[in-house]
């Protein structure tokens, strides 16, 4: 299995845990990731919010690069990058006029043909025994609140799973031995990119998600999106300050926990760069 890999702009910075753990887990599971040479930013929310054309064009250039690589499938770990690439792919294939315009803009003609998958889809597409047979450190005592956020389950054209009650990530963690709790904020929005400009809004939304996860008895939150991760992990301290709460919920990328379960060392999964201390979870897993 060989995929063109789009690491996203935060791969070495705010989302380094995700990139590191994704590469480590894929290596272990025999999924070959080939980084797209000379990829560019997908434009994220600022891109399509400023101009629809700009948003599609920034993403489409990367798809053209994948086609040049001669690969049919491309994946992104970051949920936002995934959504942008996948949406651009849908639009380029269904809207001929737009496609022509975009191809002129990028100067790199792309006419479809690449399949965009999130890394979650790829890993969860493995046979369950491919994970369960490799379990070194099953996550037996761990109660996880699996948090999907928005970008992987909406809109319909690119959804990885059901937008109201997605289960793919739950099943993956269950295969790794963890318990996944039933909670009602699975696909609620964390406020994402509003954080920089309107932090108060994001603190409120993120606070609700932490409250729900705590109420449901979770030991940690598991996500597949750097924006969610950043808001839940880095801003947790601020939330506690503003609302007078005392949350200490570690927030993981699902790849970190899968990696842990199949025997990759916590240091190689970047457990030590979190804002909320992750040692509690390591102790629980044993």
């Amino acid at each position: 299995m060989k995929y063109a890999y789009f690491p996203g702009c935060c791969d070495h910075t705010s989302a380094r845990e995700y990139d590191i753990s994704t590469r480590a887990v894929c290596r272990e599971l025999g999924i070959e990731l080939v980084e797209i040479p000379d990829w560019n930013c997908c434009g994220s929310t600022p891109g399509h919010s400023t101009s629809h054309l700009l948003g599609v064009a920034l993403a489409a250039r990367n798809l053209a690069l994948v086609a040049e690589m001669g690969l049919e499938e491309c994946t992104a770990s970051c949920a936002a990058c995934y959504q942008r690439l996948a949406m651009a792919n849908v639009e380029m294939q269904s809207n001929k006029k737009l496609c022509d315009k975009v191809n002129w803009v990028t100067g790199k003609p792309y006419h479809g043909g690449v399949r965009v998958k999130s890394i979650l889809e790829i890993i969860s597409g493995l046979q369950p025994e491919q994970i369960s047979s490799r379990l070194v450190k099953p996550l037996d005592n761990l109660k996880t609140a699996v948090y999907y956020g928005c970008l992987m389950v909406r809109p319909k054209a690119v959804q990885v799973d059901d937008p109201e009650n997605p289960l793919v990530m739950d099943h993956l963690l269950q295969a790794a031995g963890a318990e996944t709790i039933d909670w009602c904020s699975k696909t609620e929005c964390c406020g994402a990119s509003l954080a920089i400009s309107n932090e108060d809004v994001v603190l409120k939304l993120t606070g609700k998600i932490l409250a729900e996860a705590t109420r449901a008895g979770a030991d940690c939150i598991v996500t597949a999106c750097p924006l969610c991760h950043f808001n839940l992990d880095m801003r947790q301290k601020k939330i506690n300050q503003v609302f007078g709460t005392g949350y200490r919920l570690p927030v993981f990328y699902f790849t970190q926990l899968i990696g842990l379960a199949i025997g990759i060392s916590p240091d190689d999964l970047s457990f030590n760069t979190h804002f909320v201390d992750t040692r509690k979870v390591l102790e629980l897993v044993g």
């Binding site: 700009l54 803009v105 790199k108």
Partner: peptide
């Protein structure tokens, strides 16, 4: 982290502006 072909990306911005 600079892209090798950041001119490509700059061109994207310019052409979008032009079209719009």
């Amino acid at each position: 982290a600079k892209n090798k072909n950041h001119r490509d990306v700059r061109q994207i911005f310019q052409r979008v502006k032009e079209l719009e």
